[in-house]
Structures are given as C-alpha cells and as structure tokens.
C-alpha cells in the first residue's frame, strides 16, 4: 500500500481551563488515502471538530497543547513552522464548516471573499482571480454566478452559501478537503443536494475528503472508510463494510441502532444512546465508554474499570478498542444487529 496522503498518529489536543485540562482529543490515529472519503462519526463533543481543526493548524497553540503527528503527503505539520502550515491551508488542504452563514464574512461580497482565497495562493491578477471565482461558482451549481459575485452572504439562501463555501475551498485545487458537518445547518432537501455535489466534485477532482457527519445515510453513500470517535478517542475504525456489517465495539452498535443497513434511509440519524457522554476533564481510568456500556460485565477481572483498552487490529484495516473477546464481540453483534453473518459482498453488489 502506498503512503496515505494524510496520516494522523497519536494526536492529542488539550485545553487548559479553569476546571482542569480538557482532553478533547486523546490519542487519535487514522489515515486518508488520495481519492478516498473518510467519514468521522461520533456524538457531540467526541472531538471531531477539534481533530479536524488540529489537522488544519487552526487550533491556537498558545492556548492548547497539541501533540502527536500529522503528516500531509509525508510532511510533518505539528512541528512545521506556522508560516509553512499557513501556506498549505487553502492550498493543499481546505475546510468547509457547519454553518455557512456565520462562516462567511458579513461585510465582504462573495466575489471579494473568493478572490482573496485565490490571490493568497496564486499570483494572478484580480480579474483572473475573479474569473476563477466565477467559474468555480458555476462549477458548484450556483446559477447566475456573475450576479452572485456581487452579492453579500446574507443575500443568499443557506444551500447557496454552503455552495459558496465549497467553491471557496476548491478554488486552489486542494488535495484534501475537510467537511465538518457541512449539511447540519441546512434543510433536508438541500442537504441531499450538497452531499451529491460533494460526491460529484470528489469524483471529478479526486480530492481526499474527511467528512464529519451525524448522518449515517451520508456515510453509507459517500465514505470508503469510517472512524468512530468517542470521548476524544477512536473507538473503532474500518472500511465502510467493516463498520456497517462487522461492527465490534459496543458504542458503534449503539450508533448503528437497530437499522444498521446500507440501504437505511438517507436521513437516518444516529440513534441516541442512553447515558451522558464522558467529561473530558477527568477521564475514567478504564474504558471511556464504561459508564454507558451494557457489556462490561462480560469482561473478566473488571478490566473495563481499571485498564484502558488499546485500539487493536482485527484485520489490517479494521481496528477496535474494546476488552471484549473478539469472538464474543462478533457473536453479540450478530445477535444484536443481525448483520455480522450477512455476506457484505452479496449485500453490496
């Protein structure tokens, strides 16, 4: 296997606060290959946004401690000079955010904001930059792009704004695009349009995408690989088939709920799991999911309370962080979800 385009190793982000140190991201590992879509799923507060902002170098290192390794095309970003990371932002890696209205500057026209994004990385004239901006608006399906360039963010609908954000992110042909819940703030019908657009653009440009979402339908539609996060950690990681058909971690089971099927409705939401997400200030000594886990009694010797499970591979692609015996996990999954026995190859094709 060739080196992945983005490699994240043992990423940790800690925010010192008055109440104590918040470990928002606590040892996260994953990789994204060129041309692939990696989905990150997990409850609110599990550290998805902080992870993606750490990759982009958007975490203020003066107020937070970021450690580990982030390699973009082999280049280590966490130890790189800030100026070096800045020059990659918007150029080799770009990001779109959850709320397109608040993410666009209210006082600058769309054209100005797009031209600025071009000019920071390309030494072209204003009019050439404007032309690029216009073409990209056209590309992302914005009607009347010439007029839209003069508009301000508040003149556009939510869907159009998110298209503008996508256009802005794609202007410099980034090799990695991070989309942090790009549809959460939008209407259901618009959500589908934006996701289709992202998928089409991904095919067209061959961009690697990290897609952060709560929408399991979207994950099934777009993703090649899935990372499940809980309490700032990766608790399970695998191909889309691994996660949908062979999930092995109790939290993933909870997420998938009772309908963990590829053909589940597009707007299938994550099923709520009883209990509260953990406080990130004083994490339990054992497994972070322990207070909400129905299966910890099956692990002998109270290890769920005393020992942190490691993220261990089941197959080269599939890794799980749980003390349960793998055979037992598969049994429970089969019983609970009725999927582990199904042949993914048959279902998929």
């Amino acid at each position: 296997m060739s080196d992945p385009f983005l490699q994240v190793k043992d990423l940790r982000v800690q925010f010192p606060t008055e109440d104590g140190v918040v470990s928002a991201v606590d040892g996260v590992d994953f990789a994204v290959a060129k041309n692939k879509v990696l989905a990150i799923v997990g409850e609110s507060g599990s550290g998805k946004s902080v992870t993606s902002q750490a990759i982009m170098g958007l975490i203020n290192r003066k107020t937070a401690k970021v450690t580990g390794e982030i390699r973009l095309d082999g280049e280590e970003l966490l130890t790189a000079r800030p100026e070096q990371v800045r020059s990659l932002r918007g150029k080799r890696m770009a990001m779109i955010f959850q709320d397109p209205l608040s993410s666009l500057h209210p006082f600058y026209s769309i054209g100005k904001q797009l031209v600025e994004a071009v000019n920071v990385h390309q030494d072209v004239s204003r009019s050439a930059a404007m032309q690029q901006a216009r073409d990209m608006l056209d590309r992302v399906g914005i009607p009347n792009p010439d007029r839209r360039l003069k508009d301000y963010p508040h003149n556009l609908s939510g869907g159009m704004r998110q298209r503008v954000m996508i256009a802005m992110a794609l202007l410099n042909n980034p090799e990695l695009l991070i989309a942090d819940e790009p549809t959460t703030a939008l209407d259901v019908t618009v959500q589908a349009q934006i996701i289709n657009l992202l998928r089409d653009l991904q095919r067209e440009f061959g961009t690697a995408i990290i897609l952060i979402t709560h929408d399991l339908g979207v994950v099934a539609d777009m993703a090649d690989d899935v990372v499940v996060m809980y309490g700032g950690r990766v608790v399970e990681r695998g191909s889309i088939d691994d996660i949908y058909y062979r999930p092995e971690m109790p939290y993933t089971w909870g997420l998938l709920g009772s309908v963990p099927r590829m053909d589940a409705g597009r707007n299938e939401r994550l099923q709520p799991i009883p209990g509260q997400p953990p406080s990130l200030i004083r994490l339990p000594k054992g497994c972070v999911f322990r207070p909400r886990c129905a299966y910890h009694e099956l692990v002998p010797g109270n290890r769920c309370d005393t020992e942190r499970p490691d993220l261990l591979p089941v197959t080269p692609e599939h890794a799980v962080r749980c003390h349960l015996d793998p055979a037992q996990r598969r049994e429970i999954a089969a019983e609970r979800l009725g999927v582990a026995t199904a042949d993914p190859a048959m279902e998929d094709k």
Partner: peptide, 24 residues
C-alpha cells in the same frame, strides 16, 4: 466563525486580524 474561515483560507495573520477582524 468567519475569522476561522479567513485562517482556513491560508490568509496571513496580519490580514486575518488587520482586515477581517478590524472591519467587523
């Protein structure tokens, strides 16, 4: 959020604060 966007675009800190920040 739009200040974060300005940084995500790769703008220099000078521009982020001196232009996007001051303007608003």
């Amino acid at each position: 959020d739009y200040i974060r966007t300005a940084r995500a675009k790769g703008l220099r800190e000078r521009t982020v604060i001196g232009k996007h920040g001051l303007r608003a």
